[in-house]
Design a protein around this nucleic acid. Structure first.
Lengths: 161, 161
DNA sequence: AGATATGATCTGCTTTGACGATCATATTGT
DNA sequence: ACAATATGATCGTCAAAGCAGATCATATCT
């Protein structure tokens, strides 16, 4: 078994992409169940998480932040809006743009879904001791922070965003 | 800026899925370039990495390991085989299954692509100090090891696999 | 030997997501 | 104020990938 494990784990240990993909797959497997009440599934959840005024949350920014196409974002927000979880509102600073904001119902849905997602996250990191899991989360966040490519481009010029 | 950064980072810090996805996206952006000579791109590379006799590398196992559909795996291996990078060989232990093994040319291609992928990996983890990056790799591998769902099912009964 | 199970391939279907073009609205320059 | 420009949102098209079903070859069980 030890032979096999070491052989098997070799690619996972050396290949960052494979390990990341495996972990994300596992996460999404659980997240799909945890978010089956939300329109858009895991992606709808991510939008909901970020649909707050503090994030200058127009659709383009959200799309860029989550790495999905802006045309897909339209349908995603449509569905969330039809479900009454978010609402579109013209940005007072630039009324071409439309902010995507959680409604009260959206807050409640987020709280509930967040609880279930949290359980999934814990399950995904179940192979790590608590301290290691915490360290992993910290390093992951640090590595990911500057991941969104041209993230600050539109917020730099709008400080109050 | 600090306000914005903390707001912005909030989702990344608390939401495992979002951070994982952002990091993987970044990896794939680089990996696509790094593997543009290989059939199948990043996925072809992953297959190539795992196409070794030590991994009981039949197509079903590979597909499960990489989380891709078995019908897609057929085409993927077809392309790699046509490019002369791997060869199919009936498993002597079970001639229904076909082992996918790297050829000499495949080894060379893997070495070259691996070098470029390594650079991408380093870039992806560029936000971390070297020691932190190493820790992250270690924890990621540990968390991912038992990720492939029913991984051991077919190898448990074939010890020499 | 016959029945059943598994692996690989092939075929068709459906969904998803990305890309390009277009439309609507707001901002800027004169 | 009005044209020119810019930005964001939407629509239509298309390729990639997953999914289900059927077929064939080989293995295993009884």
């Amino acid at each position: 078994m030890t032979d096999m494990t070491s052989e098997r784990g070799l690619a996972l240990e050396t290949d960052l992409g494979q390990a990341l993909a495996a972990l994300l797959r596992r996460y999404l497997d659980g997240a799909r169940e945890a978010t089956d009440e939300l329109p858009g599934g895991p992606r709808g959840y991510q939008v909901l998480v970020n649909a707050t005024a503090a994030n200058c949350s127009n659709q383009a920014t959200l799309a860029q932040l989550l790495g999905i196409d802006r045309t897909v974002m339209t349908y995603l927000v449509d569905d969330l809006e039809n479900a009454g979880l978010v609402e579109r509102r013209p940005d007072p600073a630039d009324r071409r743009a439309r902010q995507v904001l959680r409604t009260t119902a959206g807050e409640a849905a987020l709280t509930e879904a967040g609880r279930r997602i949290r359980a999934v996250e814990d399950h995904v990191l179940g192979g790590l001791a608590d301290a290691d899991a915490q360290t992993f989360r910290r390093l992951l966040a640090a590595a990911a922070v500057d991941a969104p490519p041209t993230d600050h481009s539109m917020c730099d010029v709008v400080p109050e965003c």
